[in-house]
Design a protein around this nucleic acid. Sequence first.
DNA 1: AGGAAATATGCCCTGAGCGTTATATGTGTG
DNA 2: CACACATATAACGCTCAGGGCATATTTCCT
Lengths: 104, 104
Amino acid sequence: MPAVLEVLAEPHRRQILDALRQGEQPVGVLVDVLGASQPAVSKHLRVLREAGLVDVRPEGQRRLYRLRPEPLLELDAWLEPYRQMWRISLDKLEGHLTPGVPDA
Amino acid sequence: MPAVLEVLAEPHRRQILDALRQGEQPVGVLVDVLGASQPAVSKHLRVLREAGLVDVRPEGQRRLYRLRPEPLLELDAWLEPYRQMWRISLDKLEGHLTPGVPDA
DNA sequence: AGGAAATATGCCCTGAGCGTTATATGTGTG
DNA sequence: CACACATATAACGCTCAGGGCATATTTCCT
């Protein structure tokens, strides 16, 4: 389900998201930040956009990219069952003080 | 930094983690669950293990794999700055409706 | 209109990841 | 000890993602 994970697997793309936390950025700035070629960055932005992780807005001859929350919220949701597990595990540890509870 | 994301990009690996939420499982069971070949599963388990996402314990001729929380906690931590962003955004939205009410 | 700046796209090439088959390793059982 | 079961590893092939270069496209400026 989370195609987000496949998109986030790429370090450069994470760098882009990271940079966009500062707010909207034109492609040029991202190129500088990443130290990658402009076409490379544009391609990553395409992927990010198609995954819904970023949004574009034309401003003159530049295109301003900004973050979009939804996919990351989805990822957050994907993590939830695991969080519950750890929580239970931690509870068990604390419960160690109270005896007589073997684990399954 | 989160090599976790690269590991989680693989659907089969996510399936494995998913299956391990039920508790320790031997390789054979995972093979059945995934419907993949045994060597394929073993290789994925290797990757998961080297990423610290699972742990092994020999039990007779089987090897029982179980989840390990740390890498997912790391991922959770990676999400944190983004969560803050959305929280701020949401606060702004709410602030429009009911002004002057900060939440705990 | 012509030219420069900003960005996107197409094409090719390389490398890495995943799968499959065959085989090695290890571990119980008779 | 010989053999079956469970898992790991090796070797190979294939596909695809990511990078580079050249080029198309849009927009701004004069």
